[in-house]
Design a protein around this nucleic acid. Structure first.
Lengths: 143, 143
DNA sequence: CGTTCAATTGCAACTTAATCTCAATTTCAT
DNA sequence: ATGAAATTGAGATTAAGTTGCAATTGAACG
């Protein structure tokens, strides 16, 4: 079950896997792509087991600490998170017209970043690259 | 004077260069590096010409629209801006221990990003790359 | 100069995300 | 089953940023 590693994380800290936390984890694992806390909260409201807003936010923070989930950006309104467990690292292109998010990965990009870190004696642990602009569809539409 | 191009921008839109707006622009141009709106507001409070919080925020938005200033990230608490006028594009390394921000630039990185955009038929207009980790000093201290 | 009118200001109320407080409840190890 | 410790939910709170509106200001024109 997907909450296994989360449970490990919790137990290792003397914390408990409650039904509310399971509801949050379950919801996140059943969603693909990015999500926002508020949206997550309302989806949980509509599911079987309910959890308060406070619990959803608290669980989300625990998930980030556990490394299963990552905060990938702060949009105009609030944070955006992403499930990293079982997902390969990638970066994002965001269309400023329609909001579409395109994921991509480039080995070259990673290598160069490592080189840069070495150059500055910086120990890089993570990064976020966001390229903003217009996606293919919006470019066509504008023409 | 540095507010010249800003004035051009304003005039082109039928807006006015007021003393409050000048105070904001002056403060930003006299600061090097990054800044946060709230901090900017308090610095202006302490200077000769004062401007209300509302005016500071409104002017900041105009400056972003004019392209002289860019919002480079949202930190834990609020936005972080940077003066782009007269500054070459660069990316950031942020030390998660001490908060130090190191600026760097890599031609390679830019080229590869352009290639990626081409590959996805994406028209990239700007990007933000933030590498998080530990800076040289904090690495030493931890040892 | 002074008039005129749209743009601007400041204040305070508002919005929205997220956190915190605390009494009541639940969990897990024993 | 029991008890200590963790967790929950409801609502208050915080903080960044925005907005509405009456009063004020700037600049273009005569």
């Amino acid at each position: 079950m997907e909450s296994k590693t989360f449970q490990d994380f919790l137990v290792g800290r003397g914390l408990k896997l409650t039904k509310e936390r399971m509801a949050v984890v379950g919801e996140i694992f059943s969603t693909h792509g990015h999500f926002e806390p508020e949206h997550l909260y309302f989806k949980i409201r509509g599911s079987g087991i309910k959890a308060s807003r406070a619990s959803v936010y608290r669980t989300l923070n625990l998930l980030v600490q556990s490394g299963l989930v990552e905060r990938i950006s702060r949009s105009e309104k609030g944070n955006v998170y992403e499930l990293t467990f079982g997902h390969k690292h990638h970066d994002h292109m965001v269309c400023t017209d329609c909001g579409e998010v395109i994921e991509f990965y480039s080995e070259n990009l990673e290598t160069i970043q490592n080189d840069i870190c070495t150059k500055y004696s910086f120990e890089g642990t993570s990064h976020t690259l966001e390229i903003r602009g217009q996606c293919r569809t919006c470019r066509k539409r504008k023409k």
